[in-house]
Amino acid sequence: MKYIVCVTQSPDTAELPKVTVDQAESGNQGLELITNPWDEYAIEEGLRLKEKQGGSVLAITVGPAGTEGALKSAVAMGVPKGVRVWDDAFAGSDALAIGRILAAAVRKEGDYDVVLTGKTTVDGNGALVPVALASALGAALLSQVAKIVAIGDGKITVERLVEEGREKVTADLPVVIAPVKEINEPRYASFMGIRKASRAKFDVWDAAALGINAGSVGAAGAKVAWGNLSKPPAREGSVVLMEGETVEEKVTKLVDALMAEKVI
């Protein structure tokens, strides 16, 4: 079995409110980047599949030099190898183009069984890359995956988290999986993993290596244009204390208020 994990960097969510419109438009948020938290579940699941089923795991990221952080996190957690994919023609890519670029990288790696990605990236929060990637690969997309039940004989069965509960789905391999946080608890890097990641050097694949037509990706191929970007208004809140003689009375008032506000 061959597993591929697609990872990227993102700002820490706690830092996001500090980003200005200008910074968001320029693409340089001026923040220290961490591994996109959703990707950690994908990395962990890739490692668990390898540990249970055998086979190999490869981590792939799209980004210019200096964006190897997510690959290093993957290596520190135990992924043996990572590849950075970049070409100046990729700059300004939208989610569709990132999906195409990742699909080309996955194909270059050859026969694969499962591609795992974070379900979304915490900065843009579009959740489109897994869709674009699966579409470009012609593979089934299994989103909201909370558990991999079985894998083998060219098939995979998973549990997806849906509004009413969980649904069990079986698909033919290869597939693209976008997990939810219920799937696992990502491991902490070990010291030897940290050492390996600190010393790791990554191959770089460019547009020519991937056989990508430069006009189909990057700003030239973007289908999404950002017209007018603005920050959402700051949330307004107020505090209401429920007064009452007894706990029962206070709780009754609280429940009534929550129902009136249609919270419950």
Binding site: K72, A76, Y188, A189, F191, I194, R195, A197, S198, R199
Partner: peptide
């Protein structure tokens, strides 16, 4: 810190 020490610190 060197890269390994920084990574260790952050982890």
């Amino acid at each position: 810190f060197n890269e390994e020490q920084q990574f260790l610190h952050d982890t």
